[in-house]
Amino acid sequence: MFRPLATLFGLVFSAGVLATPVEDLDARWQGLKGFEGQFTQTQRDYDGTVLSESTGTLALSRPGRFHWAYETPYVQTIVADGEIVWVHDPDLKQVTRRPADAALDGTPAALLASGESLGKGFEVLALTTGEGAPTDADGWRLTPLTSEGEFERIDVWMRGNVPVLLTFSDPLGGTTDVRFDDIKGNPRFARDRFDFTPPRGHTVIGDD
């Protein structure tokens, strides 16, 4: 990964002062208008016991559009077109639709899809590299400024200007890791990449 702009990689200076953690993270995060690749999602209990693990592919275009496709251990596709979030369960022949604002509020997807400064909703602190941290990555801990969301904190690890690991910690001590692989930053998406039409013969449930 080449590094064309020092401002994207923690070397931002203003009047000779090193950028704050939120400025450093925002410089990278807001410069990433979209990405696509593979993911592994692992949910653990408070004692570290693995509760579930799933894999799939994702594509995201900010603000508010993404295509998140689970491939194992089950097939499910979640598509957000900027206004509506569609959840497609092919085994059930069922599609659920909800307004994006209501469906994404307080969820990991809202963090990924947002193009706003992370400092608006979180206290941001830099993390030091330690056990379990991705190699050659920089990390930040995001603590929500309100208690309305589903998570107590979110650890964001980026290599260059693309995310490699997000860890969401819930109030009961459980965690959800989302690891990204083969990520391409700011790709050119087809116009219909984030469109969704319910397949014929499927039941559609949700808000009109």
Rank of each mutant, 00 (worst) to 15 (best):
M1A: 15
F2K: 12
R3I: 09
P4C: 02
L5P: 00
A6C: 02
T7K: 05
T7P: 00
L11F: 07
V12A: 14
S14D: 15
G16M: 02
L18Y: 05
A19Q: 10
A19E: 14
L25H: 08
D26Y: 03
G34F: 07
G34D: 03
E36T: 11
F39W: 09
F39T: 08
T40L: 11
Q41A: 09
R44Q: 04
D47W: 06
G48S: 03
G48T: 09
V50F: 00
L51C: 00
S52L: 01
S52P: 00
G56F: 10
G56S: 09
G56H: 06
L58I: 06
S61V: 02
P63W: 11
W68V: 00
A69C: 00
T72G: 02
P73H: 02
Y74F: 15
V75L: 06
Q76V: 03
D81W: 03
E83C: 01
V85E: 13
W86K: 04
V87G: 01
V87R: 15
H88R: 13
H88D: 10
H88A: 04
D89G: 08
P90H: 07
D91M: 00
L92A: 14
V95W: 13
T96W: 13
R98Y: 13
P99F: 10
A100Q: 15
D101T: 13
A102H: 11
A103K: 12
L104P: 08
P108E: 04
L111I: 07
L111H: 03
L111A: 01
L112P: 01
A113D: 02
S114I: 05
G115F: 03
L118I: 09
G119C: 04
E123M: 01
V124I: 14
V124Q: 02
V124N: 06
L127M: 03
T128A: 12
T129Y: 05
A133C: 06
D138M: 12
T143W: 10
T146F: 07
T146Y: 08
E152S: 15
E152L: 12
R153N: 12
R153A: 15
I154C: 05
D155A: 02
V156T: 05
R159H: 10
G160C: 06
N161L: 04
P163V: 04
P163W: 04
V164Y: 09
L165Q: 12
L166Q: 05
T167F: 02
T167Y: 01
D170W: 10
L172I: 13
L172G: 08
G173L: 08
T176C: 09
D177F: 01
D177K: 04
V178L: 08
D181G: 11
D181P: 01
D181Y: 11
I183K: 07
K184Q: 11
K184L: 10
G185A: 13
N186Q: 08
P187E: 08
A190P: 12
A190F: 07
D195A: 13
F196G: 14
T197I: 12
P198I: 10
P199K: 06
T203R: 15
G206Q: 11
D208Q: 14
